[in-house]
Amino acid sequence: MRILVIEDHADILANVSEYFVLKGCEVTGALDGVTGLHLAMTGSYDAIILDVMLPGMDGNQVCHKLRSVSRRHTPILMLTARDELEDRLTGFRVGADDYIIKPFALSELFARVETVSRRSAGMRKNVLEVHDLSFDLDSLEVRRAGRLLKLNPTTLVLLELLMRKSPAIVKRRELERALWGEEAPDSDSLRTGIYMLRRTIDKAFEVPLLHTVHSMGYKLQAPSDVQLAVDRH
């Protein structure tokens, strides 16, 4: 499992990370809400462990942004030192999947993360997501911010590869192979496809997702400046 842990207490973050790594997980950590939100919006994780009390942006705000702005459905387990019913209800209202009270046993935390991740995987459709862009691989529907977009077969192939690799750079040759195999036409054909894709998924929206990496290729990536994205909403 790939786990994101957003926790401002360095010792707790280190202990959780070490335990989950020993269990075979790949763990990414963040010590504040803004950094955690950026990682959650730009990366792909099987579950997020999210502390409620965070500097800069608290856990409830992070959870709300992930659910309502970027439309991420990654399972979220929230950590809190407060055992009040209203605190837990607030977390569930903004989109948390589970709650655990501090102090907690690492074994219980791991078991709960496994449970919410397994439950989410069973419910999840075959959908790729980057920021507010989604691609349903079964229906071939592409949406951004809830708006249905029309793509032709060429741009659908490009989009699927870019979304699967996001936020990594996809080299030009890899994109050409995906479209035409080993018999790629001239380079203008790929540029035309990228232009059409960019016009469809970016032109009508404030935040661009498709980026050209000079002399290398292209990448699909959520905004690098999360605070700007937060301020806009």
Rank of each mutant, 00 (worst) to 15 (best):
P153M: 00
K150E: 01
S187H: 12
V157P: 05
A145C: 15
A178E: 09
L179M: 10
L149G: 01
P153N: 02
M163D: 00
P167V: 00
L158P: 00
R172G: 09
L158M: 03
R177V: 13
L175W: 08
M196N: 06
M196A: 08
K171D: 02
A178N: 07
L140H: 02
M163S: 01
L158I: 02
G193M: 00
L156M: 13
R172E: 15
L162N: 08
A168R: 11
R172C: 14
D188R: 05
L190C: 03
A168Q: 06
E176A: 03
I169L: 12
K165G: 04
S187W: 08
I194Q: 04
G181M: 12
P167T: 00
N152K: 10
L156P: 02
L179D: 06
D186Q: 14
R143T: 13
M163Q: 00
E141V: 04
D186F: 10
L190V: 07
T155S: 07
A145V: 13
T155K: 15
E183H: 07
L149Q: 04
L161P: 05
R144Y: 08
R191Y: 13
P167I: 00
P185S: 15
M196K: 12
D186G: 14
L140I: 05
K150P: 00
L149H: 01
L159I: 15
